[in-house]
Design a protein around this nucleic acid. Structure first.
Length: 204
DNA sequence: CAGTCGATGTACT
DNA sequence: GTACATCGACTGG
């Protein structure tokens, strides 16, 4: 299928906020042997070395975040809270520490594989509605840190185009600094977004 | 429904 | 020691 071509590297070599917004509606695809796991990205957050105290890259390059400083189009996976992984899409040119966190997806293919990893009795709505849940459902861990998204194993493909009136911008989740930055993007009314504490997501 | 809290590796003060 | 781009179990109303 033509739409299942990986997004070109030039897609990622753009301003991070634009990449974040345009990732909404695209398909994250992982092929493991003959099996395919896929999800539609419905919620993301942008992180940048400039003016963003909450970004891992804010204080410069370290062993953990060095992938953020590589060229756009790679996967940045980090370990947090002693038990969870989160995945990001690296953006912009080599030397710029920026990335987009994938916070939630809508399961499209490989539901049974996701349930095998997440739990046999987890409902479809709860498989990938959080950044660490996405990694667990897709089997993403530190072994995928730094891999290319041009495939063949892991790719992001064009999906449904999301018009501006269906994109919600808001503050990011789970951070204590730079709360004024409206760098969280989600598809309005989509039921597969994460459900953090605080004001409930009512689609707006 | 909301709020609290434990798990537990890594980075940073 | 403390904080952390989280999750899920548990508590009380």
């Amino acid at each position: 299928m033509d739409s299942l071509q990986p997004l070109p590297e030039t897609f990622y070599l753009r301003p991070t906020l634009k990449v974040a917004r345009d990732l909404l509606g695209t398909l994250f695809v992982r092929k493991i042997g003959n099996n395919i796991i896929a999800g539609r990205i419905v919620e993301v957050e942008a992180y940048h070395e400039n003016g963003d105290e909450s970004s891992h890259s804010y204080r410069g390059c370290t062993p953990r975040n060095e992938v953020m400083f590589r060229r756009g189009g790679l996967l940045y996976v980090y370990f947090t809270y002693g038990m969870h992984f989160c995945m990001n899409v690296v953006t912009e040119k080599e030397g710029t520490g920026a990335a987009v966190l994938i916070r939630a997806m809508e399961p499209i293919a490989g539901i049974e594989l996701m349930q095998h990893r997440r739990g046999e009795f987890i409902s479809r709505i709860d498989l990938t509605n959080g950044p660490a849940k996405c990694c667990q459902a897709f089997g993403i861990d530190k072994r995928q840190n730094g891999i290319s998204l041009q495939g063949p194993g892991e790719t992001i493909c064009r999906g449904e185009k999301i018009s501006d009136d269906r994109v919600l911008k808001s503050s990011r989740i789970g951070i204590r600094r730079s709360t004024e930055l409206q760098w969280r993007f989600r598809i309005a009314g989509n039921p597969f977004i994460s459900k953090p504490p605080g004001p409930v997501n009512r689609g707006l």
